[in-house]
Amino acid sequence: ENVVSAPMPGKVLRVLVRVGDRVRVGQGLLVLEAMKMENEIPSPRDGVVKRILVKEGEIDDTGQPLIELG
């Protein structure tokens, strides 16, 4: 899985990584606010952040691509 998608609709509060960062499975990639709760979205695998497809403050839909890993 190279693309991390939104598991729920919500607002992107914080992006915790930058392009080029090495990430490990379970590491937080970004924080979504949904139903007044903050949810940290973890990396599904080890890899390198290739692209960040959303910006802080954006509203996303379920299934929307958020981050691409390489």
Rank of each mutant, 00 (worst) to 15 (best):
residue 59 I to P: 06
residue 31 V to Q: 01
residue 67 I to D: 02
residue 41 I to L: 08
residue 28 G to A: 14
residue 46 D to S: 10
residue 40 E to F: 11
residue 16 L to C: 11
residue 21 D to L: 06
residue 29 L to E: 01
residue 22 R to K: 12
residue 45 R to K: 11
residue 31 V to I: 13
residue 62 T to K: 13
residue 53 L to N: 05
residue 20 G to Y: 02
residue 6 A to G: 04
residue 4 V to N: 02
residue 64 Q to R: 11
residue 23 V to L: 03
residue 65 P to T: 08
residue 6 A to H: 03
residue 60 D to P: 15
residue 45 R to N: 07
residue 49 V to G: 01
residue 53 L to W: 12
residue 3 V to M: 13
residue 48 V to C: 12
residue 19 V to T: 07
residue 5 S to V: 15
residue 51 R to V: 09
residue 22 R to G: 07
residue 68 E to F: 08
residue 51 R to N: 09
residue 61 D to N: 12
residue 3 V to W: 14
residue 4 V to S: 03
residue 67 I to C: 05
residue 14 R to W: 01
residue 46 D to E: 10
residue 58 E to R: 10
residue 44 P to L: 05
residue 46 D to K: 06
residue 56 E to Q: 10
residue 32 L to F: 15
residue 66 L to K: 02
residue 46 D to M: 07
residue 43 S to R: 01
residue 25 V to T: 12
residue 63 G to Y: 07
residue 56 E to V: 14
residue 7 P to V: 07
residue 52 I to Q: 02
residue 41 I to P: 02
residue 58 E to N: 10
residue 20 G to T: 04
residue 63 G to V: 05
residue 24 R to N: 10
residue 35 M to I: 07
residue 7 P to Y: 06
residue 6 A to N: 07
residue 8 M to S: 10
residue 20 G to C: 11
residue 21 D to Y: 03
residue 9 P to N: 08
residue 58 E to M: 12
residue 20 G to I: 04
residue 47 G to D: 03
residue 44 P to N: 05
residue 39 N to D: 05
residue 27 Q to F: 05
residue 61 D to Y: 15
residue 53 L to R: 04
residue 19 V to D: 04
residue 51 R to C: 10
residue 28 G to M: 11
residue 50 K to I: 14
residue 60 D to T: 15
residue 12 V to Q: 00
residue 49 V to K: 01
residue 30 L to T: 01
residue 24 R to W: 10
residue 61 D to W: 14
residue 18 R to A: 13
residue 34 A to V: 14
residue 68 E to Y: 10
residue 54 V to K: 05
residue 47 G to Q: 02
residue 60 D to C: 15
residue 66 L to C: 05
residue 41 I to D: 01
residue 45 R to L: 12
residue 8 M to V: 09
residue 4 V to Y: 02
residue 57 G to S: 05
residue 31 V to L: 07
residue 5 S to K: 14
residue 11 K to Y: 09
residue 37 M to I: 13
residue 27 Q to C: 07
residue 52 I to H: 01
residue 45 R to I: 15
residue 27 Q to V: 06
residue 13 L to P: 00
residue 41 I to E: 02
residue 61 D to I: 14
residue 35 M to R: 10
residue 12 V to L: 07
residue 33 E to D: 07
residue 44 P to M: 05
residue 40 E to V: 15
residue 38 E to H: 09
residue 24 R to Y: 12
residue 1 E to Q: 12
residue 58 E to W: 14
residue 19 V to G: 02
residue 28 G to T: 15
residue 45 R to D: 04
residue 70 G to E: 15
residue 70 G to A: 14
residue 35 M to F: 13
residue 68 E to M: 10
residue 6 A to D: 02
residue 25 V to K: 15
residue 25 V to P: 07
residue 59 I to H: 12
residue 58 E to T: 11
residue 30 L to H: 00
residue 14 R to I: 09
residue 13 L to A: 05
residue 37 M to P: 03
residue 68 E to Q: 08
residue 24 R to H: 13
residue 57 G to Y: 05
residue 37 M to L: 11
residue 19 V to S: 04
residue 16 L to R: 03
residue 2 N to Y: 15
residue 61 D to R: 14
residue 19 V to R: 05
residue 65 P to V: 10
residue 34 A to R: 07
residue 16 L to V: 04
residue 59 I to V: 12
residue 34 A to D: 09
residue 42 P to K: 15
residue 49 V to S: 00
residue 10 G to F: 06
residue 26 G to D: 04
residue 28 G to K: 09
residue 4 V to P: 03
residue 25 V to M: 13
residue 47 G to H: 03
residue 32 L to Q: 04
residue 5 S to W: 13
residue 10 G to Y: 03
residue 36 K to D: 15
residue 70 G to Q: 14
residue 69 L to A: 00
residue 49 V to Y: 00
residue 31 V to P: 01
residue 13 L to S: 06
residue 70 G to D: 14
residue 58 E to L: 10
residue 56 E to T: 10
residue 51 R to P: 02
residue 45 R to H: 10
residue 22 R to M: 12
residue 1 E to Y: 12
residue 36 K to Y: 13
residue 10 G to W: 00
residue 29 L to K: 01
residue 41 I to F: 04
residue 50 K to T: 13
residue 51 R to D: 06
residue 65 P to S: 07
residue 18 R to S: 13
residue 45 R to S: 10
residue 36 K to M: 14
residue 63 G to C: 10
residue 68 E to S: 06
residue 52 I to C: 03
residue 22 R to W: 14
residue 25 V to S: 11
residue 52 I to G: 01
residue 67 I to P: 02
residue 28 G to C: 14
residue 46 D to I: 05
residue 44 P to D: 06
residue 13 L to T: 10
residue 40 E to K: 08
residue 30 L to A: 05
residue 37 M to G: 12
residue 26 G to T: 03
residue 53 L to E: 03
residue 53 L to C: 11
residue 26 G to Y: 06
residue 33 E to F: 13
residue 43 S to D: 01
residue 55 K to Q: 12
residue 14 R to K: 12
residue 70 G to K: 12
residue 45 R to C: 13
residue 17 V to T: 01
residue 34 A to F: 15
residue 1 E to F: 12
residue 27 Q to R: 03
residue 6 A to L: 08
residue 14 R to V: 09
residue 65 P to M: 08
residue 17 V to Y: 00
residue 16 L to E: 03
residue 70 G to P: 02
residue 67 I to V: 10
residue 52 I to M: 02
residue 34 A to H: 15
residue 60 D to N: 15
residue 29 L to Q: 02
residue 18 R to D: 11
residue 13 L to Y: 00
residue 8 M to F: 15
residue 32 L to E: 01
residue 36 K to C: 15
residue 23 V to I: 08
residue 8 M to P: 04
residue 53 L to S: 03
residue 2 N to W: 15
residue 16 L to F: 03
residue 62 T to P: 10
residue 70 G to H: 14
residue 58 E to S: 10
residue 15 V to A: 00
residue 57 G to M: 07
residue 24 R to G: 08
residue 50 K to C: 13
residue 68 E to R: 04
residue 39 N to P: 03
residue 55 K to T: 13
residue 30 L to S: 00
residue 1 E to W: 12
residue 46 D to Q: 07
residue 31 V to K: 00
residue 56 E to C: 09
residue 53 L to Y: 13
residue 55 K to V: 13
residue 10 G to V: 06
residue 30 L to C: 05
residue 17 V to L: 00
residue 27 Q to M: 07
residue 54 V to G: 03
residue 22 R to C: 14
residue 11 K to E: 04
residue 20 G to Q: 03
residue 14 R to Q: 08
residue 64 Q to P: 04
residue 33 E to I: 10
residue 48 V to H: 08
residue 40 E to I: 15
residue 68 E to L: 13
residue 6 A to T: 06
residue 62 T to R: 12
residue 25 V to D: 05
residue 40 E to R: 07
residue 16 L to H: 04
residue 40 E to Q: 10
residue 64 Q to V: 12
residue 47 G to N: 02
residue 22 R to T: 12
residue 39 N to A: 12
residue 16 L to S: 03
residue 69 L to K: 02
residue 50 K to W: 07
residue 24 R to P: 03
residue 10 G to C: 09
residue 43 S to T: 04
residue 58 E to I: 11
residue 44 P to C: 06
residue 29 L to V: 07
residue 6 A to K: 03
residue 2 N to A: 11
residue 8 M to G: 10
residue 34 A to W: 15
residue 6 A to I: 05
residue 66 L to E: 01
residue 9 P to D: 06
residue 40 E to M: 14
residue 12 V to G: 01
residue 12 V to I: 13
residue 67 I to N: 01
residue 67 I to Y: 02
residue 41 I to N: 03
residue 57 G to E: 06
residue 70 G to C: 15
residue 45 R to V: 14
residue 18 R to F: 06
residue 19 V to Q: 08
residue 55 K to D: 09
residue 17 V to E: 02
residue 20 G to A: 04
residue 30 L to Q: 00
residue 11 K to R: 12
residue 5 S to R: 15
residue 59 I to E: 11
residue 24 R to V: 13
residue 28 G to S: 12
residue 23 V to Y: 00
residue 18 R to C: 12
residue 11 K to M: 09
residue 42 P to G: 10
residue 29 L to P: 00
residue 63 G to S: 09
residue 39 N to C: 15
residue 58 E to C: 10
residue 26 G to C: 09
residue 45 R to W: 13
residue 39 N to M: 15
residue 7 P to T: 09
residue 22 R to E: 11
residue 64 Q to M: 11
residue 56 E to D: 09
residue 68 E to I: 15
residue 58 E to F: 12
residue 36 K to H: 14
residue 44 P to H: 09
residue 26 G to H: 05
residue 35 M to E: 13
residue 25 V to W: 08
residue 57 G to C: 08
residue 17 V to R: 00
residue 41 I to G: 01
residue 15 V to S: 02
